[in-house]
């Protein structure tokens, strides 16, 4: 089987600073990839390059067995995206927003509405179909974003913190959905800072640190390098072990206990 996504030596710099230092990985159809890394590691940059929202400096990207052509956007109709910062056009109603997104994917009005109502019903927000997004809670907005990423039945999903703000029941629904989408052969990039969710959901973990892939493999295999949870593995690989000392420093900050060098 051919990889559905392949990155070869992808480099990206911002103002002379190398954010991606030659990223290499490939993803097979039907895989759920836990895509994690500390803040500023280059996760969002990679996803934005894959979505054609940013230009890479060098390297090759193959997606759906074709080399990515930055001028041809048609491949995006097979991708669903939930961005980390849940931005929406808030003056629109949920119905209008989903119609807007669906039509950009070339779908027909009737089809969009039928799908949207069904999915909103499943996530318990059908009553808000005609409500303006500006009046939605964080969780409701997240649900609309998730629906907008699925409405055109994409083959690859890029989900950045998709469970943010969702209640416990909705989280469970989405987790079940992910398993079913995997069975359907969909590929899912799942990016989150909630390690135990990533650990449980992913077939494979990709850890990005300082613009480089520092770990790539199924969690069971990676565990051999550093026993324990994914969180502990993450800390080991990103070289971070000062949690307690820094918590103490925060406490001092709250109390106003300054040392002379602070």
């Amino acid at each position: 089987m051919e990889p559905i996504v392949e990155l070869i030596d992808v480099i990206k710099t911002f103002d002379g600073r190398e954010v991606l230092k030659g990223i290499n990985f490939s993803v097979m159809p039907g895989e759920i990839i836990g895509y994690i890394g500390p803040n500023g590691a280059g996760k969002s940059t990679t996803v934005k390059i894959l979505l054609g929202m940013l230009k890479k400096d060098s390297g090759t990207i193959r997606i759906f067995n074709q080399t990515l052509d930055e001028k041809d956007e048609t491949y995006k109709s097979r991708i669903g995206y939930v961005p980390e910062n849940a931005e929406l056009y808030e003056t629109l109603t949920a119905k209008e927003y989903l119609l807007f997104v669906g039509e950009l994917y070339g779908m027909k009005e009737k089809e969009i509405i039928r799908k949207a109502v069904l999915m909103m019903d499943a996530l318990g927000i059908k009553e808000s179909f005609h409500g303006r997004l500006s009046g939605f809670s964080k969780g409701m907005r997240q649900k609309v974003l998730i629906i907008s990423s699925l409405i055109h039945d994409p083959d690859i999903l890029f989900w950045d913190e998709p469970l943010s703000g969702l209640d416990a029941n909705s989280v469970q629904i989405i987790k079940e959905l992910l398993a079913k989408l995997k069975d359907e052969g969909k590929t899912i990039f799942y990016s989150s800072h909630v390690m135990d969710t990533v650990e449980k959901l992913s077939d494979r973990i990709l850890i990005l640190h300082g613009g480089e892939v520092v770990a790539d493999g199924p969690f069971n295999e990676l565990k051999k390098e550093a026993a324990g949870t994914l969180e502990e593995l993450f800390n080991t690989l990103t070289g971070f072990d000062e949690h307690e000392a820094l918590a103490d420093q925060l406490l001092k900050g709250i109390k106003g206990e300054f040392t002379h060098d602070a």
Partner: peptide, 13 residues
Amino acid sequence: TKDADLIGSKPVS
């Protein structure tokens, strides 16, 4: 720049 995130990720040139 908001359009870049919301529309840029869709198949729109």
